[in-house]
């Protein structure tokens, strides 16, 4: 009986989550410099997906389908992927301040992507996302090595992350300044701040599978992540193959971060703040926390994108600026709380 009620409430929660996600996507497509009515959005989707044959203003239809919807979908994936990476890193490293941006993984991914795009690293064998993935792994490896040498304290990995971010950002700037022409470098600098302006459907073909696979891999390890609550030694004595879980999950985080960075640049703070918001709402069990974080991340990023498009009329703010404006104060609050808890 309890099991039945449980599975019923789980189905209800999943349906609600899907509804919220679709509502956010819908709003993302409707809101913008020129507001497009909700029903036009609906009909455009029906036309494109099922050849419904509604007659619509082709300009509106084009804006909804080619620009806003693709953008909203990629934003959603990006938010989910970053939030999931944040949850995983915070749990595995047992550090509430961990996230791909702060640990330098995003910076490494940027360097990798730029190295492939501008320097032509890998001579056609490496695509930008793959370059970003290698950069992300390299950065995390370097940061962990530095943290290990600096000692086991909780602060060590964060300090190492700061150093790593600085290093890789400097490398990126060096590559851009040295090898790119003026126009390229302007575009790249804009992209580095986190930008969804150039996003089209082909980008979604990378973003959606990455986010979905990332979510599934994390969910598969939900119980293992729970077992890390009392540290890796305790996880091991609860039967978790610690090293394998580290490799798979940190690999998955790096993959998600790298894919998103190669599409939209590095967006800060989403991966840090959203897991905490989700924990406050649904608690710490990863079976629930992971999907909740993914959902909140998706909705948050769609909202941030809408804000970035409408806040200054006639201009688009890089989305990274919006997330930082929300995230940095939240980070400060977290830091303060941690200090007070000691």
């Amino acid at each position: 009986m309890i099991g039945f009620a449980n599975s019923l409430s789980r189905t209800g929660a999943s349906l609600l989550a899907l509804f919220l996600l679709f509502a956010a996507l819908w709003l993302g497509a409707a809101i913008g410099e020129t507001a497009i009515p909700m029903d036009v959005v609906g009909r455009t989707i029906a036309n494109r997906l099922w050849q419904a044959g509604y007659s619509l203003d082709p300009i509106n239809e084009g804006v909804v389908w080619n620009y806003r919807l693709s953008r909203a979908v990629v934003a959603a994936c990006c938010g989910s992927a970053l939030a999931l990476s944040g949850v995983v890193l915070q749990s595995l490293l047992r550090n509430p301040l961990a996230d791909p941006y702060i640990l330098g993984i995003s910076a490494g991914a940027s360097t990798g992507a730029v190295a492939v795009a501008i320097l032509g690293f890998g001579a056609g064998l490496l695509t930008m996302p793959l370059g970003a993935f290698l950069g992300a792994l390299l950065a995390f490896g370097l940061v962990s090595l530095l943290a290990m040498r600096a000692g086991r304290g909780h602060g060590a990995i964060i300090l190492a992350g700061v150093a790593g971010s600085q290093l890789f950002n400097a490398l990126t700037s060096l590559i851009v300044t040295k090898a790119a022409n003026a126009e390229q470098s302007r575009a790249i600098m804009f992209w580095l701040l986190g930008n969804l302006s150039g996003v089209r459907w082909p980008d979604a073909w990378l973003a959606v599978p990455t986010a979905v696979i990332g979510l599934l891999v994390c969910l598969w390890h939900a119980r293992a992540l729970d077992a890390f609550t009392f540290g890796s030694e305790a996880a091991a004595s609860l039967g978790v193959p610690v090293r394998r879980v580290y490799v798979v999950l940190i690999g998955a985080s790096a993959m998600m971060t790298a894919a998103m960075v190669s599409i939209v640049g590095s967006i800060g703070f989403a991966g840090l703040v959203i897991p905490h918001a989700a924990r406050m709402l649904v608690g710490i069990r990863h079976g629930v926390l992971l999907p909740a974080s993914a959902l909140i991340g998706a909705i948050f990023m769609i909202a941030a994108d809408i804000v970035s498009r409408v806040i200054i009329p006639g201009q688009v703010l890089p989305i990274g600026v919006v997330t930082a404006l929300v995230g940095a104060p939240a980070f400060a609050i977290l830091l303060g709380r941690r200090g007070a808890a000691r």
Binding site: P96, T229, F230, E233, A234, L238, R285
Partner: peptide, 15 residues
């Protein structure tokens, strides 16, 4: 073995 998570007593045993 310690934790900073907001875990309940029962959840700790459920692990």
């Amino acid at each position: 073995a310690e934790t900073g998570e907001r875990i309940s007593a029962r959840q700790a045993v459920e692990l």
